[in-house]
Design a protein around this nucleic acid. Structure first.
Lengths: 180, 180
DNA sequence: CTCGCTATATATCGGCCCGATATATATCGG
DNA sequence: CCGATATATATCGGGCCGATATATAGCGAG
């Protein structure tokens, strides 16, 4: 699923500027399962415009900042999005530095591991709090479903870290001597 | 965490060819939380060799296939890996087509959603089975910890899909008419 | 009041990453 | 003995992304 399709998906929920699309992947409802930076979004918006899948409207009533471009999805764009959504999904891709480090946990100083897991647990709790707060009654079913799935996964990860952290830290090098 | 560090991590568990390193990310213990293709691994191995962090040994006793190069981590390589593991981990990056599609689930035909979730559940069950089977007593603590974390997360996701799928499918367009 | 910080907003560039592809051989089952 | 699969290395084009440049508005501290 390329960034063009991702932008189409965001714009199908309402018009937005490139900056606002980015925010959806940074803090908004897409943040937990997809990512896209400016370096991908602006080229994607240009190509989508060329193909007639979206249309740009220069911000009205704002003479002082003419740069602002609000993008809206077209009928052709909605059809293209729907076709993309019907295709078989590619396998998930995860890149987790935390997990990679934990894999070698028994070679690291226990104090460092302790701090690493504390930070991770704090992150999960912050995310769970934030997600609990944004469950409004007017939320579309798909968004609620995805939010619930994310909550369940983060909760499971946090629970595991709490109940199993001692197994990893207890197995780490007993003194703060050199690893391996 | 770049592919150079990932290769260093794999090689710190034992010497391997580029092909074998790839397999570790495809089917092996790293498959669930990191990924790396040939197009990244071979250039990374070349740079690691140039920097003296790994050493290549042409396969001994195999005159018929001289291409095979077995890479081994050096002392300098181990030190570099340890320094990388002590750095603050970058935030996780997830790219999940399945979740993106589910976000728009209420705009899709119920039959399609049903098939999508069935396939996903089958995937989770296959992974959980495979992970259960590879828990041997001689596994290092870090690897066991990471395996347990992955199991907990997949199980939570599968449970959620089973118990909440009707909420999404029930909310989808009641007939198989056009979306939106 | 103004300095600096943050937020809004667009855009590009170098470098990294990665899927697809080419090449070659061994092994194993039918 | 043929085809499929596994082992193994390598490259290329295209896509992606972090960092950076640019510009302005708004807001709070001093």
């Amino acid at each position: 699923m390329d960034v063009k399709t991702l932008c189409l998906g965001v714009l199908s929920c309402g018009s937005a500027t490139g900056y606002e699309i980015r925010k959806q992947f940074d803090e908004g409802p897409f943040a937990h399962f997809y990512d896209a930076g400016y370096g991908s979004i602006y080229p994607a918006l240009r190509r989508l415009s060329e193909d007639g899948l979206i249309e740009a409207v220069d911000a009205p009533g704002d003479q002082q900042r003419p740069d602002r471009k609000v993008y809206a999805i077209t009928v052709k764009g909605r059809a293209t999005l729907l076709a993309e959504l019907m295709r078989d999904p590619a396998p998930d891709k995860v890149r987790s530095d935390f997990t990679f480090i934990a894999f070698f946990g028994h070679r690291l100083p226990p104090a460092h591991l302790d701090r690493l897991i504390d930070t991770r647990l704090a992150l999960y709790r912050r995310m769970l709090d934030q997600m609990k707060g944004c469950d409004t009654p007017d939320m579309p079913p798909g968004e609620r479903f995805v939010l619930g799935l994310g909550t369940a996964v983060y909760r499971a990860a946090a629970d595991y870290l709490e109940t199993h952290r001692h197994e990893l830290i207890g197995a780490a090098l007993p003194d703060d001597e050199a690893a391996d």
